[in-house]
Design a protein around this nucleic acid. Structure first.
Lengths: 338, 338
DNA sequence: ATACATTATGGTAACGTTTTAATAAATACA
DNA sequence: TGTATTTATTAAAACGTTACCATAATGTAT
């Protein structure tokens, strides 16, 4: 038998309103009455109907997050950060996996948008500015990771990809590598990670007066297989690279695989640096040098900021872009220990 | 401006009941009227208030899942399977990370239980039978992974851990290893995985007339560090093992680390098999032989069965335990390619 | 034409909560 | 003691939907 506030009121011999006030720790209730109600609550197993509460309060106390791939360590860790914060705020978290598909991302957006959440987190949105702006205008609190949306009045967090890439490539150069290639992400104009990392690569090469040979910029779509085929193409060039910087670790794993197959020694004959610092980097041989993004921190910050927004709807102080610094994690594949 | 069904009714010149019927594709509405309503719906941006709908229908169309660690690949993949199915059923998914802590698991249970979900999935529950039975009795649909709860009238999915362990150990024996040790999980009586895998190990040793030396059964708590220290202890025995079977891959990684540090050659001087087939197994050197659990399939099945239950509350056909067969994935660490 | 089904529509209660406004009780002040 | 003020309590409206029941419109058989 499921009890309602009405049952409690009857049992305690008070009105519904009084029980409600006790439940919500409101003042204006005599200690004596409060005790009476609390005593009843102790003896029975009453669970408030949150749906009714939400209908009345016009809130959902749930947030949503849409990530490209829930089973990728990078995003799983980020979700964990968000989850912690949401939980602290007694707020549910609905996780959606868009499977790297903008269409699916759009349909999930719609799904969440249909009154299922108070706010949502877009991780690397494929949606364009107009779409994001519209959702924001509709009063749903949103926050974005992976794209600077400050100009749209939407808070966001980004990692300084340019700087991370620059550090990585500069590091390779310091080790004496000269023919450095870049394997990027999606080629699409809305792949901001790719664009910024490529720019960092270019700048580092340029600052050190190194030439980027024809074909040295290739794409692997962020997957291991993509990295495999991209590096295979690079090897076929008449003057193959002596080092590769990859826009993520997955692709670096692909490169490593091909290098092993072709008996190319890493780092002796090929320098290699990835991006993201996924856990596998520690276990490959050689271990993978990479650029680390503080995923858990990012998740925590995303959660924190969204929840702040939820509670301060009209405070725009947080609708700004926060840039986090990535960090070069030196391991074996860059040549530091050869 | 947020529209309600009332606004639509007014605009279409019909009653709210009619609009409701159109929205829910009920019959008993004339084509002409339906058209009229649909036309209005096309021109405006009406989003039904799901909270109200749920209050009225006494449903939440949301399920919850509690996993020990969201950022562990094993569970992330499982969640992905659940997520797919939930989404197909137009059902939200709330993910909770209990951080391997029974207390947290309990508080999350309470959190979800408080009218936030229609049903929930317990992945490797630390809760005891009484607790589970109580939740089940309260009419919340639940399903469990990692523990056979059929006798409680709760549907569950388990992997045949005994068989998986048996296969693994037998495989080691076939390669000629004789002094085989086992590194288990939690030692606790409610760590069913551990119990079953240990039993499989014992049986395989017994069937092949091999002795389990003193100290050959140790525990590592499923973490890499745990594996590290457990193997360190094993090495200190006066007759150290020539092979180790670990109750999961994380601990096998720890073993591998210590072996490398002590220049013990795997698989020449030490055979090693793990459990779970996490992705890292493919990248270590040597690559790790392991027992694979079909995580994605498990997730899919969990989602499917829970949603079936939601729609068929009184159908007990599904309150049964489903046993999945694990598969030995042969790689280098077991000695197949030495 | 009348009676009777059948089909279509509308009015309204209900879901369980919070909150506002009204009322009752207690306290303070003159 | 009586009035004004504060404090405590309650009744009832509201949140937006669905579903039951009543009524109206239409169709069919006598």
């Amino acid at each position: 038998m499921i009890l309602t506030i009405k049952d409690i009121a009857k049992k305690a011999g008070v009105s519904i309103s009084t029980v409600s006030r006790v439940l919500n720790n409101k003042d204006l209730v005599k200690d004596e009455t409060r005790e009476k109600v609390l005593k009843v609550l102790e003896t029975v197993d009453y669970i408030p109907n949150y749906t009714a509460k939400r209908l009345r309060e016009n809130t959902i106390s749930t947030i949503g997050i849409i990530v490209p791939d829930i089973s990728a360590a990078f995003y799983a860790e980020m979700i964990k950060g968000v989850e912690n914060k949401a939980n602290e705020a007694n707020c549910g978290l609905i996780v959606c996996d868009s499977q790297n598909d903008v269409k699916k991302q759009r349909s999930y957006t719609r799904y969440l948008y249909d009154g299922r959440v108070d706010g949502m987190i877009f991780v690397v949105p494929g949606l364009d500015d107009n779409e994001l702006a519209k959702i924001n205008a509709d009063g749903l609190s949103i926050i974005v990771f992976g794209k600077d949306t400050e100009s749209l009045g939407i808070g966001s967090i980004t990692v300084d990809n340019f700087n991370g890439a620059y550090q990585a490539v500069k590091h390779l150069i310091l080790h004496g590598y000269k023919r450095i290639a870049y394997i990027g992400g999606m080629e699409a104009h809305n792949d901001y990670d790719h664009q910024a990392r490529m720019a960092g690569y270019r700048q580092a090469m340029d600052d050190n007066h190194l030439e980027i040979a024809d074909g040295y910029i290739d794409n692997g779509g962020y997957t291991e297989e993509g990295g495999t085929s991209a590096f295979a193409r690079l090897l076929k060039l008449k003057n193959p690279p002596d080092a590769v910087f990859c826009a993520n670790d997955e692709m670096a794993l692909g490169v490593l695989k091909v290098a092993k197959k072709n008996s190319i020694k890493v780092p002796e004959e090929l320098g290699l640096i990835g991006f993201d610092n996924i856990r596998i980097c520690q276990y490959t041989s050689p271990t993978l040098t990479t650029v680390s993004q503080p995923t858990l921190t990012i998740g925590t910050l995303l959660g924190e900021r969204l929840i702040f927004k939820l509670h301060n709807k009209n405070n725009n102080i947080i609708n700004t872009n926060l840039v986090l610094k990535p960090e070069l994690i030196v391991r074996e594949s860059c040549g530091c220990y050869k």
